[in-house]
Structures are given as C-alpha cells and as structure tokens.
C-alpha cells in the first residue's frame, strides 16, 4: 500500500452487500465510499485520488453497462463488475468496454482485492499519464505560432539552414526559435523533443 490516498467506490442497490463490502474493504485498509444507485454516484463529489469503481451490474435506475458507457467519456476510475446473474453476454460486453474484472456473487475476498488493487494501480498510471499529457499540452500552448511551425521542421530532422530557406528567414533566427522550443517544452535533447512532439501528435514536415 502506498501512502497516498486511494478510494474504492461501491455502487450496489442492496444495502447488505454495501455494508459487507464496506467492512471487507476497510479491513484491507482501503477508503470506501458507497452509493445505492448510479445517479447517486454520478452526482457525488469524489476525491481526486487513484480509485476503483466496484459496480453492481443490475441497478434500479441506470444499469451497470450503461453507466460504464457513460463513464467512458469522462476521466473515471476502472470498473470491477459484480453481479448476481453473471451471464456471459454481459460479462463479454463489460470486459470489451474496458472493465478490469467481472466477478459473480458471491466472490472471494482475494479475487476482489486483487482486482481492486489492479484497478487502482491502473488508475494511478492513467492519472499519471493524464497529468503528463496535461503538462505537455500546457507547454505546447506556450509556443508561439512561428515556434510551432518551426517545431514541425525540427522533428522532421531538417537542418536549420534548410528550414530558414523554406520559411524565408535567416539560419540564426531559426536557431533562436529552436532554443526557445527546447526550453519551453523542457526537452533536454532533440530525441526527447521528437518523443514529446510524437505524444502531442504533431505531424513532422514532409521533405521539401
């Protein structure tokens, strides 16, 4: 267990199941938040921490699969499905839509906790990725339109001289732009800048 905060959300319409899961997860040292319906979960304020959603497939208002679909468009935690029915078509659908695990009630504590741990790890990585991407975006935002244009030549491997000719400016100007780009993007090498540009989905300039 890591020291940073992590949360397990439980959505089940059966209070007995909610109570039991609260106790089990608490015994495993996990922070738990329980909800009786999908709506209740959607409307709740949720802490900004790596999390896992333990979701009952059959819910009275919005069923589990629909909620999964809705959550896919947001930055939501990975889902561990629990169900009393456990039919194969639903489980296939759930897994295809990215569920971490699909557990039939009653389930063992180990399999649930393993799935939850995996989910939280996944979420932590996702959150990491998301925050990296967010900072990258933020850095890219700081580039001037001219610098962004120069970037496409840099990552394509053009020499400054060629780029200067192509853009109708001096080689020195291009060199200054290049230095600004490296600084603003926080790239320590050309290779790193290429990798960051690739992450941003920047298309390198084709040969002239």
């Amino acid at each position: 267990m890591t020291v940073d905060r992590q949360v397990v959300f439980v959505v089940d319409d059966d209070s007995r199941v909610r109570e039991a899961l609260s106790s089990l997860l608490a015994s495993a040292g996990l922070e738990v938040a329980v909800f009786a319906s999908a709506t209740e979960f959607l409307n709740a304020d949720k802490p900004d921490a790596p999390a896992c959603l333990v979701l009952d497939l059959e819910l009275p208002d919005i069923n589990g699969l629909e909620l999964q679909k809705e959550l896919a468009e947001r930055e939501a935690p990975p889902i561990v499905f629990i169900t009393g029915h456990g039919d194969i078509p639903s489980s296939v659908k759930a897994m295809k839509a990215g569920a971490v695990e699909f557990l039939a009630k009653p389930f063992g504590d180990d399999e649930l906790l393993r799935a939850i741990e995996a989910s939280i790890a996944l979420d932590r990585a996702e959150r990491q990725k998301r925050s990296e991407r967010a900072s990258l975006d933020e850095r890219y935002e700081r580039l001037t339109p001219r610098e962004r244009e120069v970037l496409t030549f840099v990552v394509a491997g053009f020499a400054n001289k060629v780029t200067a000719v192509e853009l109708g400016t001096s080689e020195i100007t291009i060199g200054v732009h290049r230095g600004q780009i490296m600084r603003k993007m926080g790239a320590r090498s050309l290779a790193e800048l290429v990798r960051l540009a690739d992450k941003l989905g920047i298309v390198p300039r084709e040969s002239v």
């Binding site: 059966d14 007995r16 199941v17 039991a20 106790s23 629990i82 009630k105 009653p106 063992g108 504590d109």
Partner: peptide, 13 residues
C-alpha cells in the same frame, strides 16, 4: 444470491 454474497463478503471481512 444477494444475501449469500453478503454472507460470504462479511465472512471474509
């Protein structure tokens, strides 16, 4: 199954 699931989970807890 609902109460049974609760029984098993509570047992584990």
């Amino acid at each position: 199954n609902q109460p049974l699931a609760a029984v098993v989970t509570n047992g584990h807890a």
